[in-house]
Design a protein around this nucleic acid. Structure first.
Length: 821
RNA sequence: GGGCGAGUGGUGGAAUGGUUUACACAAAAGACUUAAAAUCUUUCCCGUUUAUAGCGGUUGUGGGUUCGAAUCCCACCUCGCCCACCA
């Protein structure tokens, strides 16, 4: 008998599948469709580890399940090839980024193929291919023409290691998301996408998505919608006014001081000569302070008085105007009023001895006393005092009324603010899609005409960034110098490139029509496949890719290119795989486990795939277990051995045994039912556990021999089919050995027969006062009365019923009978 | 400080109102073998007991609802991830 040896079968089938094209996605309108997509990978220098592989395994099992259930399945793969790591890798290894991508994608592809993933490789795309980025540029133009791409000079996050600006989303705790070094601010003219125009829609539409609450919460938090009031304060002896944003206009009568951000342009005008020196010093100091220091927790409040006073429009009170770096220039109006109803303000007031007094009090009299004694900053809702005509109102009512009152006086208005800032898209690096803009001294920024797309990246000598705030493209004079598309006069090309997130904001659409050279995609093809039904990936993209892609989809929808405005109906966030030491897998920890090593140790891809899912719930993190691999391998080996033994026995004449046949049918139909149900609910680990249980059951039956040929044949065939999404190689091989011609992976998913799911005999637990005291076996259609009688007759039950009568009997069919005394 | 998730045997986990610990790992014993590996079979929460049955206990802690709670409610503790001076 031949032993199970994955290396003898896996590569063979991978080649055959590729040749026969069984995973090709076909638009068949007679079938329902399913678009299963995993985030397309970034082909970095380090190969994929078992954590990445889990992501693809989840997608592949889903894709295979739907394919067998008769769906038209699109399961594509491509490469997010532009970006910093590829360029840095190229510089380090002294090769071109193009060459680096070629090397890395070759390695990644080989890794994916050896795992037996069912991708339609005919749809492979690469975002650094001019045939692809031509359309990325085309979409840039779409945004530009719709007023959603613009240039602005301002202070930007700058990473001095990577020599480029970064988007807000790419700065984590004041550090560059790529290299981890502290970022600084630099004044540069940059390109932005106006994602703020979509802030409200991006927040509101989250409700209609089947995404994990965690990711939705992260996006809501990032967008940071807050509804409040803008209030204008006049400045004593000046025409200037200071506008503030507040969500608590009900506290306006308590305003005791104003605070402006040091960067607020009003500061220089409001500063009186006496205070000039102190203010300038403070501004200088806060500029030089690193953002890490500025964001430090529990930092003591700092600030200086400007010498000016503002007038509270609510009560005419004169209050001092300060500047302090706890007020952010970029949010709201860059100015706030301060009072005792905010912890930060109260802290500030205490530090600088500014008198404050509450005008909102808690309803609880004890707490109210404490607040009046200024024991703490009362930030909750309550009843207004000393607030003119609003005294006695509740906070919520007062907010509405005061806003209307201020609006009528012309000194206030309702206002919605967002934390999200526009998306900074330009990068001072070589390896990205060039921004398709030409700068003309007469016509300004002009889009490159469609017939001149793509604007191809020119070859350069060195990819080393200059650090001067421009990309190396600025040095390619013959490329930079061109003519204005409008007037034909000499003009210069934009030399910044787009961030890689532009490329990934539409790739899921390109998979529907990857080779189209007339347009980005054919509308009908996109209509057939999109939106993505299952989008699988980690949570690290929550406020980057997942937000950007949603915005682009909305823009395309508004431009009439799409008839949907959300790209990903369901998002599946897989849990991380940790190294056996419990830490994240990383080169620097030297704890990375690559699938290649496990496969070459003889376990094979099927065992790895099963381990990825059996290790725990797919959406929770898990520690990789090397020992566990033995278990998944043994399981597959048992299936193999059982099949071989059956095939050898099967050569003899046909045998019949009704008793064994019934047991076999019961086992397999239950398995079909359970595995189908679990796959529908993404219960991969429990589906595998049940398959193992089923195989254990078959081994028990085997002890008596293969007594019914037909039933064994049926059972093994169905078992292989329901195992096929998890272990595609071994099931395909055994399917062939059992005499089938076509591939198991396009065979019809089996349906269970209900009659085998019902047991004739049931085992019930008998409880007395909630404790299990006995077990009884009853017929499935026994009446409650009969069962109750039997239960009460149990020796160990009687013991507890001496001199007592049951007050209540609860019968849960198929489970238990509970007697209460 | 805010948000999200988790806490069950030696370990990963199963069970989402109904017999806690399915499935697997690790460990132990037996069969086969000259031997080992592999394979097959069995045992495996704690206490009480020579042992089995039985009895008692047990899902982070404390309380509640219920005939019955890992599951629902209240309070608290611990761990992980994300965000954080956003007025």
């Amino acid at each position: 008998m031949k032993r199970y040896s994955p290396k003898d079968i896996e590569a063979k089938w991978q080649k055959k599948w590729q040749a026969s094209g069984i995973y090709k996605a076909v638009e068949d309108s007679n079938k329902p469709k399913r678009y299963v997509l995993e985030y397309f990978p970034y082909p970095s220098g380090s190969a994929m580890h078992v954590g990445h592989v889990r992501n693809y395994t989840i997608g592949d099992v889903i894709a295979r399940f739907y394919r067998m259930r008769g769906y038209s399945v699109l399961h594509p793969m491509g490469w997010d090839a532009f970006g910093l790591p590829a360029e840095n890798y190229a510089i380090k290894n002294n090769i071109s980024p193009k060459q680096a991508i070629l090397e890395n994608t070759t390695k990644f592809k080989q890794q994916l193929i050896q795992m037996g993933f069912s991708y339609d490789w005919g749809r492979e795309i690469n975002s650094s291919d001019p045939k692809y980025y031509k359309w990325t540029q085309w979409f840039f133009k779409l945004l530009f023409e719709r007023g959603l791409a613009y240039q602005k000079e301002s202070l930007q996050w700058w990473c001095d290691t990577d020599k480029t600006v970064l988007a807000n989303e790419q700065v984590e705790n004041g550090k560059c998301w790529r290299c981890g070094n502290e970022v600084t601010k630099k004044a540069l003219k940059q390109w932005f996408f106006k994602i703020t125009d979509y802030a409200d829609r991006l927040a509101e539409d989250l409700d209609k998505l089947d995404w994990s609450e965690g990711i939705k919460a992260m996006q809501r938090n990032w967008i940071g919608k807050s509804v409040g009031t803008e209030v204008d304060f006049t400045v004593e002896g000046s025409k200037n006014k200071i506008t503030v944003f507040t969500t608590r206009v009900d506290t306006i009568f308590s305003a005791a001081f104003m605070v402006l951000a040091p960067e607020n342009p009003l500061v220089s005008e409001l500063t009186t000569p006496d205070n000039q020196k102190a203010v300038l010093n403070y501004i200088k100091e806060s500029e030089s302070k690193s953002d890490i220091a500025r964001m430090e927790e529990d930092r003591e409040k700092t600030g200086v008085f400007t010498g000016s006073y503002a007038i509270n429009p609510a009560n005419g009170q004169k209050i001092p105007v300060w500047i302090a770096d706890f007020v952010l220039a970029g949010y709201g109006t860059g100015a706030v009023f301060g009072d005792i109803h905010d912890e930060r303000d109260f802290e500030f007031a205490k530090k600088f001895n500014i008198p404050v007094k509450p005008t909102v009090l808690p309803e609880n009299p004890q707490e109210s006393k404490k607040v009046q004694a200024k024991e703490y900053a009362f930030t909750g809702e309550g009843i207004l005092v000393d607030s003119g005509e609003f005294t006695g109102m509740r906070s919520s009512e007062a907010r509405e009324k005061i806003t209307v009152w201020l609006a009528n006086k012309g000194t206030g208005r309702e206002k919605v603010n967002y934390k999200i800032r526009d998306w900074l898209i330009s990068r001072q690096r070589y390896w990205g899609a060039p921004i398709p803009i030409i700068h003309c001294s007469e016509h300004g920024a002009v889009a490159v005409p469609d017939d001149q797309l793509p604007v191809e990246l020119p070859e350069v000598e060195s990819y080393q960034p200059t650090g001067e705030g421009t990309s190396v493209l600025a040095g390619v004079t013959e490329w930079v110098n061109t003519r204005c598309p409008t007037c034909g006069k000499p003009a210069k090309r934009e030399t910044d490139t787009m961030d890689g997130f532009a490329c990934s904001s539409w790739y899921f659409l390109r998979f529907a029509d990857p080779h189209n050279d007339k347009e980005a995609f054919d509308k009908d093809k996109v209509k057939f496949w999109l939106p993505v039904d299952d989008y699988i990936g980690g949570a690290e993209h929550a406020v980057m890719h997942l937000l950007y892609a949603r915005m682009w989809t909305m823009v395309m929808h508004d431009a009439g290119l799409l008839d949907f405005d959300e790209p990903f109906s369901a998002l599946r966030n897989q849990g991380m795989i940790l190294a056996p030491d419990g830490r994240k897998m990383s080169k620097s920890w030297d704890n990375v486990i690559a699938p290649d090593d496990i496969i070459s140790q003889g376990y094979g891809a099927d065992s790895v795939r099963i381990m990825e899912l059996f290790i725990g719930p797919w959406n929770q993190s898990a520690v990789w277990s090397i020992e566990g691999m033995g278990g998944t391998f043994r399981f597959l080996q048992r299936v193999w051995t059982l099949s071989q033994e059956f095939l050898e026995n099967n050569k003899a004449k046909e045998l019949n045994d009704a008793v064994q046949a019934k047991e076999l049918y019961t086992l397999i139909h239950k398995a079909i039912h359970k595995v189908s149900k679990d796959l529908n609910n993404l219960g991969f680990n429990t589906a595998i556990a049940y398959l193992m249980e089923t195989v254990n059951g078959l081994y028990k039956l085997k002890i008596d021999g293969f007594k019914d040929t037909k039933a064994w044949n049926f059972t093994l065939n169905r078992l292989l089919q329901i195992m096929a999404p998890f272990a595609p190689h071994i099931t395909e091989e055994l399917w062939l050995q059992l005499g089938h011609e076509g591939s198991i992976h396009i065979s019809k998913w089996p349906v269970h027969d209900e009659k085998y799911l019902i047991n004739d005999q049931l085992t019930l637990a008998v409880q007395v006062n909630g404790k299990v005291r006995a077990e009884i076996t009853v017929s499935k259609d026994g009446s409650k009365e009969d069962i109750q009688k039997l239960a009460l007759a149990q020796k160990n039950v009687k013991k507890y019923l001496v001199n007592k009568k049951p007050t209540k009997v609860i019968y849960v069919p198929g489970r238990l009978i509970s007697i209460v005394v």
